[in-house]
Write a protein that binds this DNA or RNA. Structure first.
Lengths: 145, 145
DNA sequence: CGGCATCCCCTTCGATACTG
DNA sequence: CAGTATCGAAGGGGATGCCG
């Protein structure tokens, strides 16, 4: 069983041909609807344009809004705000406001957010290692079509 | 150095404070622009609505178009086509056409695509394990705002 | 400093219909 | 069976401006 501890997953739609246990796939065949939803909801958060970059930048640090802005090339003020709000809402990032003048706001990963680091690292490693191969493949495909 | 073997990454923008080696982050501070691009391009592919689900469904199998359609709940014909074309263009999925009547087309992961399995598994595990916590956090946040 | 509000473009995606 | 074509809604995301 790949279902998380305590998670009441109704694993319908499953034809067991392979119990190797890809999460959400008890078979090599059909996909569990709940698992699909969970995976897509996580990807909707972490797979958007900036979330993972924000998380990676925050790993092990408390950073102010402006610091994040400087350290993530290309992000706009608006998108940093929106991304941080989403991450805060999901309990992945903690926001601390200091009642000072001028105002100071610091962001850091929560414990839950910190568990994303290995995942982010896996994605980052894969991206750096295989991005060139993908670029080549695209060039070949485009040339042939 | 976390840069992939042979990858000529110009690691500018980097202030070395921590050599722990998060991919693309030689410091705990600034982010390398190329690494950011690579990560975002990979996420643009794998982080879209269906790609990861298609990849996970194809792991270890050769499947026909209609089979994929049946095994991925909620995907439309159009989106399956588009997703498969993108994955094929990026060299992650191989498409084989059999000149028969009626036509038969089979899809399978390439070697490059297969290297995505551990990443997909990491994401899926995390999603299944932490999705409930995220839902709770959202409910709390929404109640307080 | 750290936002939020507005405007607007562009892409993504679903529904539907048609085809070799 | 395995697509392609077209349409339209939704929303992601950039630029800019205002505010406590």
């Amino acid at each position: 069983m790949a279902a998380a501890k305590g998670t009441p997953m109704s694993l319908a739609y499953i034809e067991v041909r392979n119990a190797a246990g890809f999460p959400g796939y008890e078979s090599s065949c059909s996909i569990d609807e709940n698992a699909g939803r969970a995976i897509r909801e996580v990807l909707d958060r972490v797979g958007d344009k900036w979330s993972l970059l924000v998380i990676a930048t925050l790993r092990g640090d408390r950073l102010r809004f402006t610091e994040l802005l400087k350290h993530i090339p290309g992000i706009s003020q608006r998108m940093l705000t929106l991304t941080l709000r989403q991450l805060e809402r999901d309990g992945l990032v903690a926001r601390t406001v200091y009642a000072e003048v001028p105002p100071r706001v610091e962001y850091e990963l929560t414990d839950l957010g910190a568990t994303l680091i290995p995942m982010a690292r896996t994605i980052g490693d894969w991206a750096l290692a295989n991005h060139p191969a993908i670029e080549e493949s695209r060039a070949r495909y485009d040339a042939a079509h």
